[in-house]
Design a protein around this nucleic acid. Sequence first.
DNA 1: ATATATTTTAAGGTTAACCATAAAAATTCA
DNA 2: TGAATTTTTATGGTTAACCTTAAAATATAT
Lengths: 252, 252
Amino acid sequence: MNNQQAIKEKPAIKDKPVIKAKQVTNRGEEDYIKAIYKLSDEAEGDRVTNHQLVTYFAHTAQTVNEMVRKLEKKKILVYQPYKGSLLTALGKDEAVRLIRAHRIWETFLTEKLGYAWEEVHEEAEMLEHLTSSKLADKLYAFLGAPTVCPHGNYIPVLSDMNRDDLDTCGRLKLSKAKKGKQYCLKGVVDDKALLVYLNGLAIYIDLCFTIIERDLISDIVTLAYGGRNTSLSGAVAQKLFVCEVYDAEDNT
Amino acid sequence: MNNQQAIKEKPAIKDKPVIKAKQVTNRGEEDYIKAIYKLSDEAEGDRVTNHQLVTYFAHTAQTVNEMVRKLEKKKILVYQPYKGSLLTALGKDEAVRLIRAHRIWETFLTEKLGYAWEEVHEEAEMLEHLTSSKLADKLYAFLGAPTVCPHGNYIPVLSDMNRDDLDTCGRLKLSKAKKGKQYCLKGVVDDKALLVYLNGLAIYIDLCFTIIERDLISDIVTLAYGGRNTSLSGAVAQKLFVCEVYDAEDNT
DNA sequence: ATATATTTTAAGGTTAACCATAAAAATTCA
DNA sequence: TGAATTTTTATGGTTAACCTTAAAATATAT
Ligand SMILES: [Mn+2]
Ligand SMILES: [Mn+2]
Ligand SMILES: [Mn+2]
Ligand SMILES: [Mn+2]
């Protein structure tokens, strides 16, 4: 209905249809991979049970089973009924890639755009799925190759791909810290309610404090910092990662 | 099956399930909105026919019809069979919001991450759908409130929301330019093949040139710039937007 | 060793976004 | 004013990612 129908020569420059998103894995699958990677830290034998995924995602057992079986077919994990799932090397690479992208975005949003640390997780949770290695690497370089995200968690690099202790390395859960010693906060679990709670207590990454009380019966840790004392439940203390401070400096 | 089942007190800080992506419109719909907005520039009476969408997306007529009817139900457009679709005010706002996000991302990718201008469209095409107004505004401020994207197209701001001439304002298609006059390239259609082609010809935004030949029979424009002459087809010239340069400066 | 509880899976459903085939309706052209 | 062409729409499919209900398999605890 227009000019050139017989003159069809070179692949001329013409209006191209919008590109189709054709990814290998999609958001649903990718979030399962990350979840299994994360949950396998705590679980015995590193296996992640379907039940863990049911509670983590608030999906039905049926849905979890379907997803797990699908990822199994894709060689991303090995699944044993009643035992749980174990990521393959392929699956771990995927997980680390996603966690890397996630933390890079979180760093970008806080460092460059001025987001608060409790605001970045949701955004990163979406952006991570659209992040090619190229984009991740360019962003990472732009940020100056940061080692940690705003919550103090390590941003993995390629050489970390198969390290299993990504989230602990060198750090200690505050719940395992000892009375009388001094610690520095180096990481927190990225949970919005927790982050807002910590804001209210003026607790942030790199804060140093002394443990002045450790009540093992009520499971309460009491910290002293900035001229105040704060008591935290064991549940919260389990979500804070610290390093011991050896040189006893003044930190009022 | 664990510690506190009777002690259910405050909304305690516990593991939250991963957030669910709950957007009002999704990628498919959003790309239709943008397409209708873009195509309505050229179309008569601003209406966009289903046929235009069929060729634009390379979707079937059936699919286009379904999407159009769905968007109609959502009050995003008004559709008249055999006539075409017209965006409502709501639809236009959506379109401009998306175009704004798209161009902001493109600017970020080139200005901050060093992407080439032909590499950014696909990335932006995905990122735009995950961009809240908050994110768009923060990115925009971070970029220093740029007026144009890497392809020279205007980045709309809120006050532009209902302007219809977003993509022309003040500029002229090179295909309409006159022999002997001098012009400055101010914008190009964001088409990858075109961008790569222009790279090869050392043609970029803000290049100034003189039209030394305008062959209306063969539909060819010949430009002189940087000590060279280049001939472009009318099809290409239609995708370049220029401003006339009045002060005849030296630009060899 | 059973009974109970938990976990898995079978069977079938929903919605979104696509597809194909073909009938119906409107437009355009001679 | 037909006849040819184009546009729309009715019907029915597919896949991905969720769901419910309920049966089957396994684990655990007495
Ligand atoms: Mn996070
Ligand atoms: Mn995610
Ligand atoms: Mn673009
Ligand atoms: Mn898009």
